[in-house]
Simulated assay, not measured.
Amino acid sequence: MTTHVWDYLPEYETERKDILDAVETVFASGRLVLGDSVRGFEEEFAAYHGLAHCVGVDNGTNAVKLALEAFGVGRGDEVITVSNTAAPTVVAIDGTGATPVFVDVRASDHLMDADLVEAAITPRTKAIVPVHLYGQCVDMDPLRRLADQHGLVLVEDCAQAHGARRDGRLAGTTGDAAAFSFYPTKVLGAYGDGGAVLTGRTEADGNLRRLRYYGMEEVYHVERTPGHNSRLDEVQAEILRRKLTRLDTYIADRRAVARRYAEGLGDLCGPGALELPEVTPGNEHVYYVYVVRHPRRDDVIRALKERHDIALNISYPWPVHTMRGFAHLGVPVGSLPVTERLAGQIFSLPMYPSLGTDVQDRVIAALRDVLTSPDTHQ
């Protein structure tokens, strides 16, 4: 039986009654779009973060896009971000008409190198979008200072960091706005697509509500453009309301999985060998994905599949600036050396709250077999 990096079925088996009750609650409510479930989730998700406003949208990509548009980012502007992220981060920036500008990351934690951001600021720079990658937070304090100093918008991409903290502060609570995805694999995942934007700014909240609903305030009357049809679905919102009450438990379970990996693989680690995730001091990692490194990554993945029927994922094999779809940005290969080096070494081990110890033990044993094989060291 093939082992994969993610599987929702064990969780669904445990939570099935509550999930189906959520569906019934919506279907029996008489309101299927922007009803009580969306409003309830928005209030509860905002309260979890201690912020005034949450606007539910249809996916995490549009959460980033609408967050930028709510602050006036558009054609002719530049937005500083990273290239070692899921492509939707950059797709969203590109979708506003703005130009993505990339800075490199730190080799230790794969996060935006805040020391490189100031040099990337130009008169056209309008925003900074740090990505809280893999489940831990970028150092937001220097970015907040830069944004304030230069009059820039700071939008946190929190798609991979629900519940993560740095120095006790939740991801999504430092920027002018924060974008979340609720894609099923996420730490807080729906049973389909979904997203949200958090903000403490009342004006931005109003802009976001208009942007997600065609630019309308009143039905059939457009107040501003661009407008979008980007509403969080009622069913997904009700499911998310139920799952939000279990978010801290999901995080605890993910951390337990991470500890078992560290215990089972730690003695194989070292320079030029396997490297496990490094948690930056001050960070409380939520392990959206468990990303490790090996200089012979492709050989390791191939051997795991051929010898043990374990199929692993790479998050992400191609830095965004190397993709054909972004060739128009003119960012040459070699310009982001840390990002490019990491892309050739990283891969993800299975990580989800309901991952059974038997499955995890099988992965650890298989990885130990492959890593101690002479073939891996040739």
Rank of each mutant, 00 (worst) to 15 (best):
T202P: 13
T202C: 06
T202I: 10
T202E: 14
A204Q: 14
D205V: 03
G206C: 14
L208P: 02
R209M: 10
R210L: 15
R212A: 13
Y214L: 13
G215V: 08
E218M: 11
H221T: 12
H221Y: 09
V222G: 02
V222D: 00
V222N: 00
V222I: 15
T225Q: 14
P226V: 12
G227T: 05
H228I: 00
N229Y: 14
E234P: 00
V235C: 13
A237W: 04
A237P: 14
E238D: 12
E238Y: 08
I239D: 02
R241C: 12
R241N: 09
R242T: 06
T245K: 13
T245G: 08
T245F: 12
D248F: 10
Y250F: 15
A252D: 08
A252V: 04
D253F: 09
D253R: 11
D253M: 04
R254I: 08
A256H: 09
A256F: 05
A256E: 07
V257D: 10
R259I: 14
R259V: 15
R260G: 02
A262E: 09
E263M: 04
G264T: 06
G264F: 10
L265R: 06
D267E: 13
L268F: 08
C269S: 07
G270M: 10
P271M: 03
P271R: 08
P271A: 09
P271Q: 06
E275K: 07
E275Y: 07
L276E: 05
L276H: 03
P277M: 06
E278K: 05
E278W: 01
V279M: 01
T280G: 06
P281Y: 04
P281S: 10
G282Q: 08
G282F: 01
N283I: 05
E284I: 05
H285A: 05
V286D: 01
V286Y: 02
Y287H: 12
Y290T: 07
Y290A: 07
V291N: 04
V291A: 12
V291K: 04
V291Q: 05
V292E: 02
D298V: 00
D299Y: 05
D299E: 08
D299C: 03
V300S: 00
V300D: 00
V300W: 04
V300I: 04
A303P: 03
A303D: 02
A303E: 00
L304Y: 01
K305P: 01
K305W: 04
H308Q: 02
H308K: 05
D309I: 05
D309K: 05
N313S: 12
I314P: 06
S315V: 12
S315I: 04
Y316V: 09
Y316I: 06
P317Y: 02
W318F: 09
P319T: 12
P319R: 10
H321E: 03
H321W: 00
T322G: 11
T322C: 08
T322I: 08
M323G: 08
M323T: 11
R324E: 15
R324T: 11
R324P: 11
F326D: 02
H328I: 01
H328M: 08
L329E: 04
G330S: 06
V331N: 09
G334M: 09
L336V: 04
P337A: 02
V338L: 11
V338N: 07
V338W: 01
T339A: 14
T339P: 14
E340W: 00
E340P: 02
R341L: 13
L342W: 02
